[in-house]
């Protein structure tokens, strides 16, 4: 598993892989991601046949089941365009685990070529589009939570920060023990709910302690987990996907 060393020129067209969590719970984040890319003059295609990257089954040990879903995804993106994913976790699956999943199958070579086209959204905005943002929002204090996959698998924590730092009215803070997992872990939260609860409690406490108004993350799994707990505690800290946040802060006309 290696991080990218070089990046392509700005393409004319990209595919967007929306992820199932965004599809169901945070569609506006997906749309915001698409709009951020389109504003830079890149055409975005959202293939209707996409569903889920297959990670839940892969991480639960159900490899045949994951492979069936993964095959269906690879079939959705036939052309050679980059595929942009608004989630470090799903991008990590598509980029690093597809080749493992297809190891020893006739699709292995195709999975390598496919995984090479995967970009996490913030990585794509910063490294490929070299986006420059101008903030039209009111002053706000933002706490960033970078998901473990965005940080470790995709290596895009710096891209998250770089984007938020471009916003002049945003004060960016990060919580104590920022590198620690929020306790979501997909099916982990279901299999080990008590441990997961202990983790999200502490994560939420550290985030609240930053005094931020908004929690921003690039992954909906973490957001669902942390904001779910903040809601349960009736904290005022609100969560936002980084794509929604960036779009809202930089889009004066529409919203």
């Amino acid at each position: 598993m290696s991080l990218r060393t070089g990046f392509p020129e700005q393409p004319a067209r990209v595919y967007f892989f929306g992820t199932c969590l965004i599809d169901l719970l945070y569609p506006e984040a997906g749309l915001a991601g698409i709009q951020l890319i389109r504003r830079e003059g890149v055409e975005v295609i959202f293939p209707q046949n996409q569903t889920c990257c297959g990670q839940p089954a892969w991480n639960s040990g159900y490899r045949d089941e994951a492979r069936a879903v993964a095959s269906a995804q690879m079939a959705c993106f036939p052309r050679d365009y980059p595929i942009v994913v608004p989630s470090g976790s799903c991008a990590g699956m598509l980029r690093h685990h597809y080749p493992e999943l297809f190891q020893g199958t006739p699709q292995h070579k195709a999975s390598l070529a496919f995984s090479d086209r995967i970009f996490e959204l913030t990585e794509f905005l910063v490294q490929v589009l070299k986006i420059s943002l101008s903030d039209v929002g009111k002053p706000v204090k933002v706490a960033l939570h970078v998901s473990c996959s965005a940080r470790r698998e995709m290596g895009v924590a710096g891209d998250h920060q770089a984007l938020l730092r471009q916003l002049k009215n945003v004060e960016l803070v990060e919580p104590r023990r920022r590198e620690e997992c929020c306790g979501f872990g997909g099916t982990f939260a279901v299999k080990h709910p008590e441990i997961s609860a202990a983790m999200v409690e502490e994560k939420a406490t550290e985030l609240v302690a930053t005094g931020a108004d908004t929690l921003v993350s690039g992954d909906c799994g973490c957001l669902m987990n942390i904001t779910g707990h903040l809601g349960y505690r009736k904290e005022t800290l609100q969560g936002s996907h980084i794509a929604s946040f960036l779009w809202e802060r930089t889009n004066a006309a529409e919203s």
């Binding site: 967007f16 929306g18 965004i22 599809d23 169901l24 719970l25 945070y26 569609p27 506006e28 997906g30 749309l31 698409i34 975005v44 295609i45 959202f46 209707q48 939260a189 279901v190 709910p193 008590e194 609860a197 999200v200 409690e201 669902m224 987990n225 779910g228 707990h229 809601g231 349960y232």
Partner: peptide, 25 residues
């Protein structure tokens, strides 16, 4: 167990699939 320490997630009224369809993407 999820909602023992969390509020339940709310499903969106329109999926991204639908929004993308509406926008012709």
């Amino acid at each position: 167990a999820w909602t023992r320490v969390r509020s339940a997630p709310r499903l969106a009224a329109k999926s991204l699939h639908k929004l993308a369809r509406e926008k012709g993407l």
